[in-house]
Design a protein around this nucleic acid. Sequence first.
DNA 1: ATAGGCCTTCCAGCCACGGGAAGGTCAAGG
DNA 2: CCTTGACCTTCCCGTGGCTGGAAGGCCTAT
Lengths: 131, 131
Amino acid sequence: MNIKDVAERSGLPAKTIRYYEEIGLIRPARAENGYRHFAEADLHKLTFLGRARSLGFSIGDCRTLLALYEDHSRASADVKRLAEDHLDRIDRKLAELAAMRDTLAHLVRSCAGDGRPDCPILADLAGTPDA
Amino acid sequence: MNIKDVAERSGLPAKTIRYYEEIGLIRPARAENGYRHFAEADLHKLTFLGRARSLGFSIGDCRTLLALYEDHSRASADVKRLAEDHLDRIDRKLAELAAMRDTLAHLVRSCAGDGRPDCPILADLAGTPDA
DNA sequence: ATAGGCCTTCCAGCCACGGGAAGGTCAAGG
DNA sequence: CCTTGACCTTCCCGTGGCTGGAAGGCCTAT
């Protein structure tokens, strides 16, 4: 397969696939004309990567996950630990975003949103609760 | 005030303050020796920026918010619209993250996490629900 | 005089790509 | 055989919002 075919079948942009090769996540073969030539195993790795990325794993995590995936003598505990760490990061991010949303939603509700200049949102940002 | 004082009082790193000047968010005066000289108004703007950034507003949004803050003939509707748009983005991000967390949490729960290689997490990533 | 703690600018790097230029290659149609 | 157009290649720059570090100037206290 050429790059466009794996792009379509993996759902990843061709640019991303080239980037993944550049940083050593995949090593597709080369045809005589210099074109990348992808085997089914490459496509498989790319879909793996796409799925891992869509779950928010970093490129570094993906590298480790791919190595674990290919190491048939791995311990599932290693995979689980990685996933748990990532889950913790996601939970922290969620809490942070939820706090933002609550504050913001409260401010939005308290703003008249009309033609007058008085605005509790700006007042909050300015640290002057009444302005 | 010199930069370290405003850094402490605004809670922003000195590097960030220099960056904000570079991109035109603030315009502190200069002393004869080249040092930045911050007035209370500058400090005020910086705390405004810090608060807005902590609520997740982009630098572009902050620029607009600061302009609205300084325009005493603004309409609060303009501020509210900006905040509502941002709130929508946060809500979308939250939904995306929550979906990630749910999938990931499910996978983590289903993984034995012992010394054996069998791992539902890797199996899911590989698209082979039983491996 | 010197030490150290400020300050300045500039350059480079982070993450995970995306855009676009300049040029090579290949298959189909006239 | 030639052209067209769809591929492919590498290379470099830009994104956002900083952060780190180097090289050098300034200021105060001892």
